[in-house]
C-alpha cells in the first residue's frame, strides 16, 4: 500500500487487463480504511498473463507465507496453474485474483467497474455495488466491519444522485 504507484504504472504501461479490488478500492470509493496490500482481479487469457508477468517482474514477486527456499518461477505457466495468488514483492504485498467471490469472473467484475483517475491514468476499480457484494460474500469479521460504511456511502450517493 505504501508503494501503490509503481506497480499500478507498470500494469498500465504493460496494458494489463485488470480491475482494482479490495482495500484500495474501498479507499478510492470514499471509506477511510487501512490496507497493507494491492489486490486486483485480472483477465485469465494467456496474453494477459504474459503482460502481468512482465509488469510485476521488476518487483520480484514470490509466494507469500512460503519458505524462501521453496522453488518458485514467476512466469505465465505458474499463473496458468492457479487462479488466486497472494504475493510478496520488494515493494509490498500484491494479491492477484482470477475471480471475486460474490461477483464472478473478471468479465463480470469489469462489466460493472468504475473508471477512476489515479496517478494521471484512468484505472478500473470494482464498483461500490460489487464491493458490497464481495464483502458480504467474504463474510470475515474485517469484511463485515466495513459494510456499514460502504452501505452508507451507497445510500447517500444514490439519494443525492436522484435529486
Amino acid at each position: 500500500m505504501k508503494h501503490i504507484e509503481p506497480p499500478l504504472k507498470s500494469l498500465i504501461e504493460n496494458k494489463v487487463e485488470f480491475v482494482i479490488i479490495g482495500g484500495v478500492a474501498i479507499i478510492a470509493h470514499g471509506v477511510p480504511y487501512a490496507t497493507f496490500d494491492l489486490d486486483f482481479c485480472y483477465a485469465r487469457s494467456l496474453e494477459n498473463l504474459k503482460k502481468i508477468v512482465a509488469a510485476l517482474a521488476p518487483f520480484k514477486p514470490r509466494l507469500r507465507g512460503f519458505p524462501t527456499n521453496l522453488p518458485f518461477t514467476w512466469d505465465e505457466r505458474t499463473l496458468q496453474n492457479g487462479t488466486n495468488f497472494t504475493l510478496e514483492t520488494d515493494i509490498g504485498d500484491i494479491d492477484l485474483l482470477g475471480e471475486v467471490a460474490g461477483v464472478g469472473s473478471y468479465a463480470e467484475v469489469f462489466a460493472n467497474s468504475t473508471k477512476l483517475k489515479l496517478f494521471d491514468d484512468d484505472v478500473r476499480v470494482l464498483s461500490l455495488d460489487d464491493l458490497i457484494k464481495a464483502k458480504r460474500a467474504a463474510g470475515r469479521p474485517k469484511d463485515l466491519f466495513v459494510l456499514p460504511q460502504l452501505e452508507t456511502l451507497q445510500e447517500v450517493l444514490k439519494k443525492t444522485d436522484e435529486e
Binding site: M1, I27, L118, Q149
Partner: peptide
Amino acid sequence: LLFRWLKLSPQERIEEARNKMI
C-alpha cells in the same frame, strides 16, 4: 470522518491512506 473523506478526490484518498500507513 466519512464525510471528510468524501470531500477528497479518489487519488487524494489513496494518498492520505498511504501517508497514514507510512
